Simulated assay, not measured.
Amino acid sequence: MSVQQKFDGLSDDYDRYRPRYPSGLLRAVADELAPFDEVTAVDTGAGTGIALEGMIPALGGSARHLAVDVSQGMVDRGREKFPEVRWAVGPAEEFLENLREPVQLIVAAQAYQWMDRARYADAALAALVPGGVLAVLQNNRDFSASAFLDAYEELLEKHSPGYSRHYRDFDIEAELGAVFRPSGGRVRTAVERWTRSMGVDDFVRMSSSSTQVQRAVAREGDAFLRRVRSLCEEYAQDGAVGLPYRSELFLCVKG
């Protein structure tokens, strides 16, 4: 199944229930761009524009925004939210390789793992102006800090074909550093921990917008979502579950 097929049809619940990005990490990106009088930003793998919700105000009204995603449904939803953004449907790598305008910021929020990562990093470096920034953002469920999330990951690993909770366990800073540092660039990482409270119904809806869950649903039908609901109800307090997150920012500056 292609990345496009994974996300087509999930845009409404994806947009409504997915977590947003910590404002402190978005401010760190904006601070790095302070030397520029004008900023053109490209959100790659933009989905429905969840990162744009925070990035647009963080950068201010003078910034110009472009966004690309492989899913037409995601782009349609994003265009409804942000008609002022220039949207495109297609692979991020190809979009960056074909840019013919100066770019100060490239963002990959919850999307880097879906890319052809080596090709993507090379394309981002080539597209950025000197001093420009590639910002890779991730909201990671911290299953090590939550019995509920540990049990939820175990449920996914048992019922979603091919899924492992460690699917993003690769050294992102090393990968990006190997591309940006040889030409005088720099890479740093920032981490923010926070907790989100969600009602049982909302968690089940968020879960259903996940490609991993959709694989389990394709195999087992709605019975899998009933398993998710039952697990939530087991751990819920006052009708809600607490979700600890570990959000990461990998900030790469072109030399």
Rank of each mutant, 00 (worst) to 15 (best):
K6M: 14
F7N: 07
G9N: 12
D15G: 04
Y17G: 01
R18G: 04
P19Q: 08
P19C: 10
R20M: 03
Y21P: 00
P22I: 08
A28V: 04
V29H: 05
D31F: 11
F36V: 06
D37E: 15
T40H: 13
A41L: 02
A46P: 12
A46D: 13
A46I: 09
T48K: 10
I50L: 15
I50F: 02
I50T: 07
L52E: 05
E53T: 14
G54S: 10
I56S: 11
P57Q: 13
L59G: 08
L59I: 11
G60Q: 15
A63D: 06
D69V: 06
D69Y: 07
M74N: 10
M74S: 08
G78I: 11
F82C: 10
F82A: 09
W87G: 02
W87M: 03
P91A: 13
E93N: 04
E101F: 06
Q104M: 11
Q104V: 09
Y112T: 04
A123C: 03
A126M: 00
L128T: 01
L128F: 01
V129T: 15
P130R: 12
A135L: 12
S144C: 11
S146V: 05
L149G: 02
L155C: 06
G162N: 07
Y163D: 11
S164K: 14
S164I: 07
A174L: 13
G177T: 09
R181N: 14
P182L: 09
S183A: 13
S183M: 06
V187S: 06
A190N: 01
A190P: 00
V191I: 14
R196V: 07
R196A: 07
M198C: 03
V200T: 07
V200K: 02
F203P: 00
F203I: 01
R205P: 02
Q212A: 13
A216I: 01
R219S: 00
D222K: 01
F224V: 03
R226H: 11
C232S: 10
A240F: 05
Y245A: 08
E248Y: 01
C252Y: 04
